[in-house]
Simulated assay, not measured.
Amino acid sequence: MHRLVILVALILMVSSCKEELIKPPENLITKDKMSVILYDLALVTAAKNTSVDVLKKNDIEAMKYIYTKHGIDSLQFVESDVYYASNPEVYDEIYEGVEAKLKGDLKVVEDAKKEQRTLDSIERIRKPKKLDSITVEKPLKPKVN
């Protein structure tokens, strides 16, 4: 009997976890679009952390740029983000998409660097070597006695 009570309690707890804690907002951003927005946000944040002067020089505000590019406003973004965050499985799917895109970008960059190193190596091989430090006047002749 004691085991049955524990089993029923576990079933109730598991089923109660499936309840939606937050209802979806009226203007919910789709999962796919949210993934693209978060990808762009990651890129802009990286740019902010490495090239602050360039962003200031071009008068670019990161979040304003994101909102304009995707046709959303800050409230829509925050409400959608909170909704997806309340559902960890869906939120994880969204971030897995972002991570996959970033890893794809990293591979492209690494491949381009590798290709450039190969081209640089080929160029070094093709260039004639300079013999600036060696001067050859006349060949030496052996002395005949």
Score class of each variant (00 low, 15 high):
residue 82 V to L: 15
residue 130 K to S: 13
residue 79 E to L: 15
residue 31 K to S: 08
residue 126 R to G: 01
residue 46 A to S: 08
residue 17 C to A: 11
residue 57 K to M: 08
residue 84 Y to D: 05
residue 140 L to W: 10
residue 138 K to P: 00
residue 97 G to C: 01
residue 77 F to E: 04
residue 25 P to T: 03
residue 13 M to L: 15
residue 101 K to S: 08
residue 4 L to W: 03
residue 49 N to Y: 06
residue 100 A to N: 04
residue 4 L to Y: 06
residue 34 M to K: 02
residue 44 V to R: 02
residue 80 S to A: 10
residue 85 A to M: 11
residue 113 K to F: 14
residue 101 K to N: 09
residue 142 P to Q: 11
residue 23 K to W: 00
residue 13 M to W: 06
residue 10 L to P: 01
residue 42 A to N: 06
residue 2 H to P: 01
residue 39 Y to L: 10
residue 10 L to W: 04
residue 58 N to R: 13
residue 111 D to R: 06
residue 55 L to K: 04
residue 78 V to F: 11
residue 48 K to S: 13
residue 76 Q to Y: 05
residue 54 V to T: 13
residue 59 D to V: 08
residue 81 D to C: 01
residue 44 V to T: 06
residue 14 V to A: 11
residue 56 K to V: 09
residue 9 A to L: 13
residue 12 L to A: 13
residue 133 S to R: 06
residue 107 K to R: 10
residue 118 T to N: 10
residue 59 D to H: 12
residue 12 L to D: 01
residue 22 I to A: 01
residue 82 V to M: 14
residue 121 S to Q: 11
residue 50 T to P: 01
residue 19 E to Q: 10
residue 116 Q to W: 08
residue 83 Y to M: 04
residue 125 I to E: 12
residue 43 L to M: 09
residue 20 E to M: 05
residue 44 V to L: 12
residue 95 Y to R: 07
residue 84 Y to T: 05
residue 142 P to H: 08
residue 50 T to Y: 04
residue 113 K to Q: 14
residue 52 V to K: 14
residue 102 L to D: 02
residue 69 K to H: 10
residue 77 F to V: 04
